[in-house]
Amino acid sequence: MALREVSVGPKTAMPKGYAFLKKGIKYKTLHCRRLTHEAGKTVYVVESNKKVLGIRVPRDILSRVHAQANETLPARKLATEKRDTAIIRQAAAELDSQFPKIPEEDRDLVLKHGFKKYSGRVGRTSLIPLPRKVLYAVIAHIRHKHTKYDKLLDGGVTRDNARKAIQKTVQDTLRNWGNKQESEEDASES
């Protein structure tokens, strides 16, 4: 069976028996798409200026998915919390391994800030391995909390020059916190 999706504008008439699901709720979008395809119906992708606003799917499917989402919400929230707790626990173990002498306050701030959910920070990416994420989160923490980096930027110094100016402080702090593997290249790039 061919999956059928058609792009339409927001002013295009709503097909009979269809309803709109705005973009942003991955669970509902995924299930609406899957069930619509399984039913052999068309998913209408609503776009404006090349931005997806949402999808139009059969009303009965959307109603079923809304009900299913409400029923499964507590279990999904619990699973997400467990997953997030595991991520932080793994990051904490890696942080303790790489930086055995990091002060407790700095350790807590690195975990809280660098691994904050939905922050877009390095600790949340899935593109690099955990040891690197921890290293980069620590470097960023040192840069912003233990150097004059932000003042340099505020004073008009370029990012590269500000990083070069604080590189020795970052390197020294990494060594003081017990890290022996940090290279100068990592400290200036991250």
Rank of each mutant, 00 (worst) to 15 (best):
P103N: 01
G123M: 02
V122R: 08
S188L: 15
E38L: 10
L30R: 15
S119E: 08
K16N: 15
A91S: 03
L35P: 01
L3Q: 09
L3T: 15
K82S: 14
L130E: 05
V8D: 04
Q181H: 09
G156D: 04
K112Y: 08
A86N: 11
E182G: 09
A13T: 05
R163N: 07
A91P: 02
I25P: 09
A75C: 01
H146E: 15
V43W: 00
L21Q: 02
T173Y: 04
D96N: 07
D150N: 11
N70T: 11
I166C: 06
E105Y: 11
R64W: 05
A92L: 08
V43G: 01
H146A: 13
K151I: 14
G24I: 01
K51N: 07
T12L: 02
I166N: 02
S63H: 06
L53I: 01
Q171K: 08
P129S: 11
G120Q: 06
W177A: 04
V46N: 00
L30N: 08
S190V: 01
R107M: 06
L127N: 13
Y18E: 03
K77H: 03
Y27S: 14
S190I: 00
K101G: 00
P10K: 09
D108P: 10
F115Y: 04
L127H: 13
H144T: 14
T72L: 15
A93N: 10
Y118K: 08
L21W: 02
V43K: 02
D108W: 06
P100Y: 00
T147L: 05
G24H: 07
P129N: 05
V138W: 01
D60I: 12
R124L: 13
D96S: 15
A67T: 12
E71M: 07
T173I: 15
K28H: 12
K28M: 15
D154P: 00
S7K: 12
Y149W: 08
P58R: 00
H141N: 08
S183F: 13
R159S: 15
S97Q: 13
L53Y: 01
P131Q: 05
Q68R: 04
L111R: 14
K148A: 14
E38K: 03
A93V: 11
P103T: 01
E38H: 03
R83W: 09
A67D: 07
T72W: 03
A137P: 02
Q167Y: 06
A2V: 14
T125R: 11
P131R: 00
H113V: 10
S190D: 04
D108L: 13
R89C: 10
R124Y: 10
R33T: 08
E189M: 08
A69G: 05
I87T: 12
D186A: 15
G155V: 07
T80M: 08
